[in-house]
């Protein structure tokens, strides 16, 4: 009992001080009109700060619009890269005249619908004929590591449907980046993370971890975009070709932004090849 009294004498002052100051503050705010108003106003300032914070968050949601404009910017910049240019270099005597002409332009688009678990998968993107998209245009991923998405098949005014890389009918020329041996990308409905490179010549030297990239044979994609990493390869009995199973560089399950590739010289190539085969 004595020690309790001593304890109270020693520390009770501090406790009582805080308690009574709290009581005083309560009295001040509740029984004095001016202070009450100031108190309420200050509370409003605090709630105002919270509301501001909330609007900051809603701005965050507007970020998607912002991202759209950035994607469009990217498309413009991508079109200025080297692999989007057709090099018109002419060697004449010893004068080297380097001239470049625009070959590829890009249209940024957002994926609005996609499937990856069906046998024939498609993507729907929010750009259409109004924005310059035509069937048989290539679609690449916005993923900085590379990766392609598929080929445009149907176009409406505002939307386009893309035959995904994960489609049984897909056939995109591709090559090994190390030695440039060609083949075709083809997909068997099994694993949405893997793709096959078929028709690779038998004598091609293949190693695991080789990169598969888009080739110069394709009129739909600029050359040199990484597509996958070689995982396994084999030779079917009686066949003269290797089949390579590669792991896709991009995950088609979470593609958000894509670029539709517009090859300005495709018409010329197609026309020429038709003429040649018609002869």
């Amino acid at each position: 009992m004595r020690s309790l009294v001593l304890f109270l004498v020693q520390y009770g002052g501090v406790a009582l001080f805080f308690l009574l100051e709290a009581v005083c503050l309560y009295l001040v705010v509740n029984y004095n009109q001016k202070q009450e108003e100031i108190w309420l106003n200050s509370s409003n300032i605090i709630s105002g700060t919270i509301l501001n914070f909330r609007s900051d968050i809603s701005q965050y949601y507007n970020l998607s619009e912002f991202a759209d404009s950035l994607a469009a910017d990217n498309a413009r910049l991508k079109a200025r890269l080297n692999n989007a240019q057709f090099v018109q270099t002419i060697l004449m005597d010893s004068i080297k005249d380097v001239e470049k002409q625009q070959q590829f332009t890009y249209i940024a688009a957002r994926v609005v619908n996609s499937t990856i678990h069906l046998h024939n998968n498609t993507f729907t993107i929010d750009r259409g004929s109004k924005h310059g998209i035509q069937p048989h245009m290539g679609v690449i991923d916005s993923n900085p590591g590379g990766g392609i998405v598929g080929i445009v098949t149907n176009v409406s005014e505002n939307y386009s449907v893309v035959m995904a890389l994960l489609h049984q009918e897909i056939k995109v020329p591709a090559a090994l980046s190390r030695n440039k041996y060609h083949g075709f990308l083809s997909w068997q409905p099994s694993n949405p993370k893997k793709i096959n490179l078929i028709d690779v010549p038998k004598h091609a030297e293949i190693r695991r971890k080789d990169t598969v990239e888009t080739s110069t044979h394709s009129a739909l994609f600029p050359a040199g975009i990484p597509v996958g990493i070689v995982d396994t390869f084999w030779q079917d009995p009686g066949s003269n070709f290797h089949t390579i199973s590669a792991k896709l560089i991009n995950d088609l399950g979470n593609v958000q932004y894509v670029y539709v590739v517009n090859n300005l010289m495709k018409g010329e190539i197609v026309k020429l090849e038709e003429e040649a085969s018609g002869e």
């Binding site: 001080f17 009574l20 009581v23 005083c24 309560y26 001040v28 029984y31 004095n32």
Partner: peptide, 13 residues
């Protein structure tokens, strides 16, 4: 109410 009391409690402390 509370204003003088608050000041007094403080100075007393």
């Amino acid at each position: 109410l509370g204003v003088h009391a608050g000041a007094s409690v403080f100075s007393a402390f």
